[in-house]
Design a protein around this nucleic acid. Structure first.
Lengths: 336, 336
DNA sequence: GCCGATGTTTTTAACGTTCAAAACATCGGT
DNA sequence: ACCGATGTTTTGAACGTTAAAAACATCGGC
């Protein structure tokens, strides 16, 4: 593989002139530039990333920790990763994957990756309540951006991009209301989940605005499973036979709702409208298709990378971006 | 962050002596080694990966293309990625993610990543029938290892690690047979899928060995969806009311089978035993749990990395490793 | 013709490791 | 005391880029 030196010899200029042709072509006389570019092309020159990184101290790699929590589904992770990679590539960067223990035990891994110049910074996701990574990275002055807020914190310990769960729930409520539903329930998680509280709040607010009842219509599921979604739906239907709408906090819970409706001979989209969250692969493969709130992965990724790679310097801790989900309407809420 | 030079000054030795302390400690007198190690620790020295890579021409990064095919589920990709990262890390390497168009159009991306010394080699997955990547990388003498064979090729164009789908299907058949099932069907895909043909062959072989019928008991699904799985199961049950076992080529199809059984008032694990493949998150969240064939992700990843990073040189094109899946038994085939 | 300003190209050094050769120190045999 | 062999440490250069300073070329005004 040709080096700058070989290209320079071929074009009969100095190494610096070839480097200028690549990085500051305006410095060169047109005829010199043309001659150098021809040599670059003829020799199929490709810049060596290591050499450049050594001199500039920028490796153009962004670290991302691949999650592996037991009993957790990551049904849309491939979409997120693809969007993240594509966004990083558009800025000439790439994503370096790594593993780390959760919580504070993982900090040495982040530290080592940055100290050894394997990455310039990090994209965080799967944020937990009281997630320690953000504060730690901020303290170490290691650049990062978070996909997701750190819930239950008085102040955010770093810049983040997130999807507006509350707005999403509200959107789902309005959609069901427009379809004629008047008693709309919400399938939630434990109170300790900030994300759940956020989405529950959106459901409540929208019902209030539309003059719909909320009392006794929100049920907490102990875990994110189809079984729990079905159980919660049974509980709701037993207590309220006139229930005609369900907004679920996740696609998994929504599938549980669909399961229970099926068991009771109720038709989704006709007797009861059902919506989920995440627009995972499940939403498309169930019958009828599940109406679900899609997270705008391409926009999320673009924002994350844009904030992290801002040429004006490391992202400000107060940077926040809330993006809107998109409601993908399928048969579970509106037969067609 | 301290450099070798600073550590050397602190320990009052040459830079090379510090490098030797790290990489060839046997060369040093014990007291010199101790003094140098103390300085390394005191100054919290961390080697700069770029400098080393520039000198050695090895970047210790392995490229992996994050798949993004429309209408394809990657339900276990997070497990695979985690296992791959962990295996790579155990050898001091990391995974660099990238995107590329499918087929031959993606080759320039692979070429560029290797030419620019961003990666040392690649792990390939999601192998298609007549996948062009393998032959191309082999021709370019770029190191790679494939998770999955290239189906329908007379000779394999490169080293691979794969899971024995045929053995998996056979395992599932035997399991159902042991549970008393005697008319066991197989839910497959299109004939053009080599993977499907392989698994179908395993089902057929095991049935033959056990003296079980196979005629009319294999059905092809047009796509990997719950709907198609349900449709195919309906077709099977209509034609054969005595059917008492179903081996599905994937968890998605198996879920379709469970759906259809539910519709007919048949109890999985009691009336009909059902198994799937991949042991995806779905297998655990449906009720009853789905018996499924789990791919040994940790073993797969360990083999992939071991072959790719063999110190004896680039992997031989004839290297092949077939690993056995594990049948995870849940309620869909054996109530408990 | 000279000189200051500007444009263009080259020269020098740096980044931080590793590799290989050289230098130095030590030891045992003569 | 000398010398060859071996152990230990140092020296010099290399990897391939980029950054900054220096050198060279050109031009217009005086």
């Amino acid at each position: 593989m040709a080096t700058l030196k070989q290209v320079a010899a071929h074009a009969e200029v100095s190494v610096q002139t070839v480097s200028n042709a690549l990085n500051a072509p305006h410095r060169l006389r047109p005829d010199t530039l043309e001659r150098v570019n021809r040599s670059i092309e003829l020799l199929n020159y490709r810049p060596n990333r290591n050499a450049r990184s050594l001199r500039t101290s920028a490796v153009e790699l962004i670290g991302y920790c691949v999650p592996n929590w037991p009993n957790q589904t990551h049904l849309v992770m491939d979409q997120f990763l693809h969007a993240l990679c594509a966004a990083a590539e558009r800025t000439g960067r790439h994503i370096l994957l790594f593993t780390a223990p959760p919580g504070v035990d993982g900090m040495p891994v982040y530290d080592d990756l940055h100290a050894r110049r394997l990455v310039d910074g990090f994209v965080l996701s799967q944020t937990e309540t009281h997630d320690p990574r953000h504060g730690w990275l901020k303290e170490q002055k290691i650049p990062f951006i978070s996909f997701g807020r750190v819930w239950k914190e008085t102040t955010q310990p770093g810049p983040w991009v997130d999807v507006d769960g509350a707005a999403g729930s509200a959107m789902a409520v309005r959609h069901l209301h427009e379809a004629g539903r008047r008693r709309i329930a919400f399938l939630s998680w434990s109170k300790s989940s900030g994300l759940a509280e956020d989405r529950l709040g959106g459901w409540r607010k929208a019902c209030k605005e539309l003059g719909l009842p909320t009392s006794g219509l929100a049920v907490r599921c102990r875990e994110d499973s189809i079984t729990e979604g079905a159980r919660a739906t049974a509980e709701l239907l037993d207590a309220d036979p006139f229930l005609d709408g369900i907004v679920a906090l996740s696609d998994i819970l929504a599938l549980g709702a669909l399961r229970e409706l099926g068991r009771r001979g109720l038709t989704p989209g006709v007797d009861v409208g059902v919506t989920g969250f995440d627009d995972s692969p499940l939403a498309d493969v169930v019958s009828p298709g599940l109406t679900s709130l899609r997270q705008p992965m391409d926009d999320i990724a673009a924002e994350l990378i844009s904030i992290l790679t801002d040429p004006d310097g490391p992202p400000d801790a107060s940077t926040e971006r809330l993006l809107h989900p998109e409601l993908v309407i399928r048969g579970s809420s509106a037969p067609g």
